[in-house]
Design a protein around this nucleic acid. Sequence first.
DNA 1: TCATATAGTTCAACTTGAAAACTAATTCAG
DNA 2: CTGAATTAGTTTTCAAGTTGAACTATATGA
Lengths: 408, 408
Amino acid sequence: MTISADVARRATNRGTPGRVGDVRRQNLALIMHRLDAAGQMTRAQLAAETGLTKASVSSLVADLMSAGLLSEVGLNRVGERGRPGLGVALNTEAAALGMEINVDYIAVGVLDFAGELHFHAVREQHNAGRPPEEVLSSLQSLADEALEQAGGSGMKIHAGGLAVPGLVDPANGRVLRAPNIGWRDVNVALWAEALVSGASFGTAIFNEANTSALAELWYGHGRDLDNYLYVSGEVGIGGGVIIDSELFEGPGGNAGEIGHVVVDPDGPDCSCGGVGCLERYAGQEAILAQAGVDGGNTVERMGALRVSLESQDAAALAAVERAGHHLGVATASTLRMLNLDAVVLGGHFAQLERWIVPAFRGSVNRHAPALLAEDRILVSKLGPTAAVMGAAGSRIRSVLQKPYELFS
Amino acid sequence: MTISADVARRATNRGTPGRVGDVRRQNLALIMHRLDAAGQMTRAQLAAETGLTKASVSSLVADLMSAGLLSEVGLNRVGERGRPGLGVALNTEAAALGMEINVDYIAVGVLDFAGELHFHAVREQHNAGRPPEEVLSSLQSLADEALEQAGGSGMKIHAGGLAVPGLVDPANGRVLRAPNIGWRDVNVALWAEALVSGASFGTAIFNEANTSALAELWYGHGRDLDNYLYVSGEVGIGGGVIIDSELFEGPGGNAGEIGHVVVDPDGPDCSCGGVGCLERYAGQEAILAQAGVDGGNTVERMGALRVSLESQDAAALAAVERAGHHLGVATASTLRMLNLDAVVLGGHFAQLERWIVPAFRGSVNRHAPALLAEDRILVSKLGPTAAVMGAAGSRIRSVLQKPYELFS
DNA sequence: TCATATAGTTCAACTTGAAAACTAATTCAG
DNA sequence: CTGAATTAGTTTTCAAGTTGAACTATATGA
């Protein structure tokens, strides 16, 4: 397994000549995307919906089948009369490995090309401050288990993705900064070469908030929205921006850092070196401190906070309302700059929905009136599997985008 | 002249099948972009640099020449020996019309495909509150003059672009909101049909800050930068975001509104309905009021402000420093969210460079340390022609991108 | 003056999709 | 239970467009 830089970037084309073969590459991707969206279709349906001719579809499907990416899934009645079509679908034996390192746990999962999650496993362990080698080695053993099981079921893993809570450099397989687990410039690529004995696929590295935003896109609210701001509330606050049903990465690949948007120029210092960042008002530590909840690890304290909220504890309610207010300020600024029209709240913001959303909504409306419709404030549907699914899904998307790279 | 929706958007491809002819379209665009960048090249050079064969280049150039987009420009010695090549360049007789409506003036210009501005004319007139028809009719007479002169010089206008200081809906040729000239939902498309008697080209409508940002990209600092935030300081504050050498428009086409990013949640109300927006601290009105400069129109008062600054007037210095400070806050948040690494200041921020940049720099470093290098705070090189050049340039880019649309 | 070098064109081969004809498999009416 | 109608999928022919090699055109320099 090697860390690769082939994270799907926007195909600019500019600068490279068009070859005749490019047309086929585009059409192969088109077929894959269509089947991904529709689940199962006959060649005739594919032809009708893509605009390609039946002849072309037959030829494209044949290539994709012999690469193991598609499979026929039995007869498929379409009209009342006439010859029934053979259903074609993404091969559920083709899959990607998703991995996650977070503050209090590591997780892995195998996601097949149809979007089904197999062999999902979470191992609770506190990773903050531990040496990266130790964490990565623990992750490796968990991944090995998943791969063994997947192999036993006849699945073939085509790619791997790893989500971490920090800034990454995907091109070089590095974690630049992950303050909440204490990592700084860790070369995951070096380690990944050795990960998963005998595995022959490449692994890419992602920011956890970004993969969660993508998981939401493919497996959650994204089915109904083509652009939104995803806010990931963990110990830190991360963000992911979806535009035109794609992750907006920014020039350096690290866009969406809403946790460090300034919400009060005269506010407290932040661990990022800045001043008045959102994270200092709406991160888990900040809320818990403000609410006066202490003792135990962060997960336990968040549980205690919920109890306090249920019992109408004034300090807890005020702390959450304050967080919602500031989250609204950062969101309003973001909506203006990026011209988005929906927001999806994840992580602890999802857990605190009942108490935080009213203050959040009020604040957004105050600072950016009419920019965010009533029904465009949503709460993530996905649980703790989000990051793993997003990491694996990202790699599956790379294959959908460039299926011909797996041709022999 | 008709308002058209063919504003160059990102070619997503997804959803449409690739046809064999698409390859040629891409290569035609490639030739155009290459010549735009290099100015003048022989066919052999084009082949070497694009990766196309000489045969293909000859064929592509022939098509582009018969459409009037390219012309041969005489012999061009390349090597010491051998047959000399014929230089090929963008036809300088092909051009686009740029127009601008702003608070205190209207302007037009004819920009040829090589980037030379001809027949630039500015008419000073106060447009705030005047009926749109009146302003547009005045613009029409100015445009007629430019077109007549251009026609007399044998130039052919292929497209027109209009920049206005407000939010636009390019697809429908509408100005949605332009508070500083008092327009609200003005259908420019309807009027444009009649504009410029006999003209047969389409006109597109743009946001002034966006065209200025693009002008900077093509004719200013953009030659050295592929991503930056452009901040346009006029009566209002607009913004344009450049990513990968393209304008970032956002899902709705109105991204970059930095003037209404929140810089103080408890600040004053803004004309946009929000609270604590940057414009209330760093817009011309705000600075002038804070500095205690009054009397006369905005242009005159800005002149008076400069005089006060030159003579170290305390109130003036404090007002500008305050503006710089808040501009820094909004910029820091923007850099985080969009992951940009340069800023170009335009409009009055350029005029006030000496006094505003230190405060701005300090504030950005305070809120987003290490995100913006010392030498990445730049001041626009372009004068008052920026918006007109950007508007015309945008249309020229559309032609570079899709030259085949002009084939007969 | 001729060898050499470079520019540009012509032409056969190849890839690929479109369009239409053709084969295959099913329903339904009589 | 048989044949017409209908729909699915394949085969064949054709056109677009790029490549690569051969060829023509035009220069320099010994």
